[in-house]
Simulated scan of single mutants.
Amino acid sequence: MSSLYLPAAPAPWTLRGRGWLALYRLRPAGVGALLLVRYAASPVGPYDELMWVDAPVATPVGGRPSIRRIVVSTAASVTWGRRNWAIPKARATFDWSVPGQVRVTGAGGEPYAHLTFRRAGPALPVNAEWLPRAWRTVAQPALDGGPEWQLTTIGGAAHAFPARLTVLHAAGLAPELPARRPLLGVGFSGVRLHFPIPALWPEPGPRPQGEPGA
């Protein structure tokens, strides 16, 4: 579908849904996070999402988490995720027909990922503001390869519970994951996330005299 016919959905966004997270150790000082989310409500409607986040990533403002790979189930989420926050979203198909499992297929029909998930304990309320600001500020480089970065400090709340998110196949995401044991598995219900208008680095400044628009 052409972006001409997609609903306009500029930032900020508030999203609601549920999801699962598995945290992996990648190197002595770094971690990777696998997140599987089903959004029941967003400015572009319901959609599914699977992403890989590295942290910390070296950025001009210091070490920050950064979304490295991500697929979603709708064209509107792809378009506005890229426009609003420079998130490198791509389209995929999510098959939830088997309870406790999801199969993700790439846009070309290739197997992308196969995951299982299950709850393993009671839920407790959590809030993103309990984390240091730097840990929840996602830093994304410009998608066109330019020097700009977009910095998005995420807020929100949910109920969290022990869970297992197991990777059976992840050729399109991180092929080594099935052989790795996660450090931590968490599930989330009643998720309410807030994605604000991002801050830009470097901050836009006045144009030098003589440039168009000065």
Rank of each mutant, 00 (worst) to 15 (best):
I70G: 04
I70A: 02
S73V: 07
T74W: 03
T74D: 00
T74N: 00
A75C: 07
A76T: 07
A76H: 03
T79P: 00
W80I: 02
W80H: 10
R82K: 08
R83H: 07
R83P: 02
N84P: 04
W85V: 07
A86Q: 06
P88N: 08
K89V: 10
K89S: 05
A90T: 14
A92G: 04
A92Q: 01
A92C: 07
A92H: 02
T93L: 11
T93F: 09
F94P: 06
F94T: 09
W96E: 09
W96R: 11
W96L: 11
S97H: 10
S97G: 12
V98H: 12
V98K: 13
P99A: 15
Q101P: 02
V102K: 01
R103P: 04
R103L: 05
R103A: 09
V104P: 02
G106V: 04
A107W: 06
A107S: 13
A107T: 11
G108A: 11
G109R: 01
G109Y: 01
G109Q: 04
E110W: 03
E110R: 09
P111G: 08
Y112S: 00
Y112F: 14
Y112P: 00
A113C: 08
A113M: 01
L115D: 00
L115A: 03
L115C: 08
T116M: 03
F117W: 14
F117E: 05
F117Y: 15
R119A: 12
A120I: 11
G121R: 12
A123T: 11
A123W: 10
V126M: 14
A128C: 12
E129N: 12
E129S: 15
P132T: 06
P132R: 03
R133M: 11
A134I: 12
A134L: 14
W135P: 01
W135L: 13
R136G: 03
V138E: 00
A139K: 02
Q140Y: 00
Q140C: 03
Q140V: 03
Q140L: 01
P141C: 10
A142L: 10
A142I: 00
D144I: 00
D144N: 10
G145Q: 07
G146I: 04
G146A: 07
E148H: 08
E148R: 14
Q150K: 13
Q150W: 08
L151I: 06
T152A: 15
T153F: 06
G155I: 05
G156I: 05
G156Q: 04
G156D: 07
A157S: 15
A157D: 14
A158L: 12
A158N: 06
H159A: 14
H159W: 13
